[in-house]
């Protein structure tokens, strides 16, 4: 019997080591696995490389992980938010490294990493500063840049519902990077509002097949970043 259920978010992230690469799902607050991120803050791992579309807002969730000084590098497409000063302060004072990646390239790098594709060519960013140092090649008269597939030690993801086999369905636009990060991480940890018995998820609508997921944790009423930020919450 396969059972990927973990009792708590703390248990599910307990073995993340210093220096690990961690993909963190979410686009803005949609899909941001706040409870898993907070458990990672409590756990204490340092010198992390975080791969995520954004860098969080306020001083909760991803922004709190950065604020706690646990992250040495972010790989990111849009590290700027109207209501967060955490990343800008770290970046301007030289305390964090940024690898800026166009959003579609970031998504495809993660997908490729998970699919066993070490590199691919994309038309995005040709002729821009983000092309510097990258190999380029012409196909059918058009120029493309070579981009590398991306893998990570862990992925922290938020889903809506999962079963003990690790099959996952998501909620609306909170799906975003979840399915591809699950593929690209050695250990994909998914928090879901609800864990159901095997057979309760229609195989026709499973979005992430369980083979890509190592651990599932039930978080019945996950917090929403915007509400925490509006309330002035900080973590820890």
């Amino acid at each position: 019997m396969i059972d990927k259920r973990y009792q708590s978010a703390a248990d599910a992230v307990a073995d993340v080591p210093d220096g690990a690469s961690v993909m963190i799902g979410g686009f803005g607050e949609a899909g941001s696995p706040i409870e898993l991120i907070h458990a990672l803050i409590d756990q204490g791992a340092r010198d992390l490389t975080v791969i995520s579309n954004n860098t969080g807002s306020g001083e909760v969730g991803l922004a709190a992980l950065l604020k706690a000084g646990r992250v040495s590098k972010v790989v990111c497409s849009f590290p700027r938010t109207a209501n967060s000063t955490v990343f800008p302060d770290l970046y301007r004072s030289g305390r964090i490294e940024l690898e800026l990646v166009p959003q579609g390239t970031l998504a495809e790098r993660i997908r490729a990493g998970g699919a066993g594709i070490p590199a691919f060519f994309t038309p995005a960013a040709v002729g821009t500063p983000l092309a510097e140092g990258k190999e380029s090649r012409e196909f059918d008269g058009k120029e493309y840049l070579m981009e590398r597939g991306l893998r990570a030690d862990f992925a922290l993801i938020k889903g809506r519902r999962a079963d003990p086999y690790g099959n996952v369905v998501y909620s609306k636009t909170a799906r975003n990077f979840g399915p591809i990060m699950a593929m690209a991480a050695r250990v994909a940890v998914v928090q879901v509002n609800e864990i159901v018995e095997a057979g309760m998820l229609d195989p026709e609508v499973v979005v992430t097949p369980g083979i890509f997921v190592s651990r599932v944790v039930g978080v019945a009423s996950p917090m929403h970043e915007s509400e925490l930020v509006a309330a002035g919450a900080t973590y820890p």
Partner: peptide
């Protein structure tokens, strides 16, 4: 703070 989002892909 450099931030590009999806503009280059679009």
């Amino acid at each position: 703070i450099p931030a590009v989002g999806g503009a280059m892909d679009l």
